[in-house]
Amino acid sequence: MSKRIAGPEIERLIQLLAKVPGLGPRSARRAALHLIKKKEQLLAPLAGAMADAVDKVRVCSTCGNVDTVDPCMICTDPRRDGATIVVVEDVSDLWALERAAALNARYHVLGGTLSPLDGIGPDQLNIKGLVARVAEGGVSEIILAVNATVEGQTTAHYLTDQLSGFGVKVTRLAHGVPVGGELDYLDEGTLAAALKSRTAF
């Protein structure tokens, strides 16, 4: 049995930090200690920001993004191409695509992928919302930006079937050699996908 090294408030802070993805118990202890040492500069402002987030953060009823307004700023931005919807698994994927700044489209967050073994079927994902958006009209292309996993590809095929009667173009992200990648370091699946999806030079 391990000894308690701090009061219950500090232990609780460590336990909660350990639940954050990427932080294990050891990293959580280091982070908690750093926050406590910088109580006025870091801990107090962080607590305030978290309290604000609890009060103000909303899930967008249109696309599933998180923001402080509903509909979110992306959905209400008039400069966005409303005819193109990029479908992603999670909000983190949406944010990654936004950082790339390669497309000025709107988004739709599924909230995961189909995974029968984990009990995740179509009703557990935001698929009906996507179909409803397409049924309203005005959408010409759906870009499936799901991960290149078995579950991601299963979800992509299911979505393609669900959207087949609406006359919209359904595309997916290219798979293959990453920019700056060296062939020798890539796995066989990535190389096979790159050869299959080759384009004119």
Rank of each mutant, 00 (worst) to 15 (best):
D55T: 13
E9W: 02
P78I: 04
D123M: 03
L103C: 02
A135C: 02
R4M: 06
A193E: 15
A44L: 06
L173T: 12
G64N: 12
R58K: 15
N147E: 07
P21G: 14
G176M: 05
K37W: 03
A156D: 08
A47T: 15
I120T: 13
W95Y: 12
R133D: 07
L43D: 08
I143Q: 10
W95D: 15
S164A: 15
S140N: 13
G165A: 14
D67N: 02
R198L: 11
L97M: 13
R58I: 05
Y107K: 08
D52A: 14
N147D: 13
L35S: 10
T155I: 06
R26Y: 05
P116R: 00
V146S: 06
N126K: 09
I127S: 05
L186T: 12
T149Q: 08
E141N: 06
P21V: 15
Q15H: 11
S140G: 09
V20M: 06
M1L: 05
A101N: 13
H34W: 04
D93M: 00
L173I: 14
C63Q: 01
D187T: 13
T68K: 01
E89A: 13
R99K: 14
V87T: 08
E136S: 11
D52W: 00
V139P: 00
L159R: 04
Q153F: 02
A200E: 15
G176K: 03
V57W: 05
A132M: 00
D67S: 10
D184Y: 12
V69H: 04
V57F: 02
S92P: 01
G48M: 04
R4P: 00
L195S: 06
L43I: 05
K38F: 00
E9D: 13
V177E: 01
T160I: 14
K3M: 08
R99C: 03
P116G: 04
T155Q: 04
G138L: 02
I36A: 04
L159D: 05
R26T: 14
V139W: 02
D161A: 09
A102L: 07
V57A: 06
A18H: 11
M50G: 11
A6D: 02
A102C: 01
V87E: 08
G119F: 09
V131I: 15
G129C: 02
S140M: 06
A101M: 04
T154Q: 05
I5E: 10
E151I: 04
L35C: 11
H175D: 12
W95N: 14
L125I: 12
N126F: 14
L163R: 07
G138N: 03
